[in-house]
């Protein structure tokens, strides 16, 4: 962490996403087999979520109570839950909850966090001091605790979980955007722009933003993994996606409740979370290595 912070010098020094398909970073990324595998898994998951109605053998909320809590069979490939709902179909549909919450919350946090962090770094002064001290406090909190706090205020449910996870990730993005902007502010070309009378908005969008997009994208991928895990945790505690709709987290919960009758329920849904988070983690690792070859360590 300290090491990373030390190299967290202005983003302009890093390789960025510029350069198209043949850019050196992309060639390095393509050579990373694990990362490529991660991309494939995420693509497959996305396809699964989009085409869930065509892939799932059953309606995920349809109950077949006489077949409740059965193990895997011809009829139900991954067995059934306590209401006789098809676990395979629920896992397929559950990918929607995970991906939607993961992507939406990271996107939300990314946009809002970049704006706040960027402004904070650019404006500086008392505003910056206030923002950064709050961020410092929040940063030391695990995202699950922050998420819990927000869900307490908003109540359970998918939309609220997205907001909760986004808010729990927000401090990360603020800090990520603030540092480079703070450094950029004093660089010659920005000073020159200002001297030439360019408006603040123009400077921010034209010169500052492209410079910080690189690291933000990399970290976003890693935080999607965190977001998906947080969603699963909140749903596991019964505070996330509400019945009858499936999320891998609430499926694990029902798996734990019925662990003796059908242990597969918890095992399969947990596996789904693990694979998804793993895929995002490898992509994130691969992107970081590719963009910053000096630090090919993690």
């Amino acid at each position: 962490m300290a090491a990373r912070q030390a190299t967290g010098t202005p983003a302009a020094d890093h390789a960025t996403f510029a350069g198209g398909w043949n850019a050196p970073w992309f060639r390095r990324f393509r050579r990373d087999k694990m990362a490529v595998a991660g991309v494939i898994v995420v693509l497959l998951l996305t396809l699964m979520a989009v085409f869930a109605p065509y892939l799932a053998p059953y309606d995920p909320a349809e109950q077949h109570i006489i077949y409740r809590l059965r193990g895997p069979s011809e009829q139900f490939r991954m067995g059934t839950d306590e209401f006789g709902r098809d676990v395979l179909s629920r896992i397929i549909y559950g990918s929607r909850a995970s991906l939607i919450v993961g992507l939406a919350s990271v996107f939300l946090a990314g946009v809002v966090g970049t704006v706040i962090g960027g402004l904070s770094g650019y404006i500086g002064g008392r505003f910056d001091l206030m923002v950064s001290s709050v961020v410092n406090v929040l940063m030391s909190f695990p995202s699950l605790l922050l998420g819990l706090m927000v869900v307490v205020v908003l109540g359970p449910g998918t939309t609220n979980v997205i907001i909760a996870v986004a808010l729990s990730l927000l401090p990360n993005f603020i800090r990520l955007a603030r540092g480079p902007v703070l450094a950029l502010r004093e660089r010659e070309f920005i000073v020159a722009c200002r001297a030439m009378g360019a408006s603040t908005t123009r400077i921010l969008f034209k010169h500052v933003l492209p410079n910080i997009l690189g690291p933000i994208s990399v970290m976003s991928t890693l935080w999607i993994a965190t977001a998906i895990r947080t969603e699963a945790s909140l749903s596991f505690l019964g505070l996330g996606v509400q019945p009858p709709w499936p999320s891998w987290g609430n499926m694990i919960k029902s798996g734990v409740d019925n662990i003796l009758s059908n242990p597969w329920l918890a095992v399969y849904s947990g596996l789904a979370i693990t694979v998804t988070v793993l895929a995002f983690n490898v992509i994130g690792d691969g992107l970081r290595d590719a963009l910053d070859p000096k630090q090919k360590t993690l």
Binding site: A61, E62, I65, F83, G155, P156, G238, Q242, P243, P244
Partner: peptide, 21 residues
């Protein structure tokens, strides 16, 4: 569980019951 069973029964006639657990 019974609330969830009725949720499914009523869904079949177009009535949606949201549960606030």
């Amino acid at each position: 569980p019974f609330a969830q069973i009725f949720q499914a029964h009523w869904r079949a006639i177009g009535v949606t019951m949201n549960l606030n657990i």
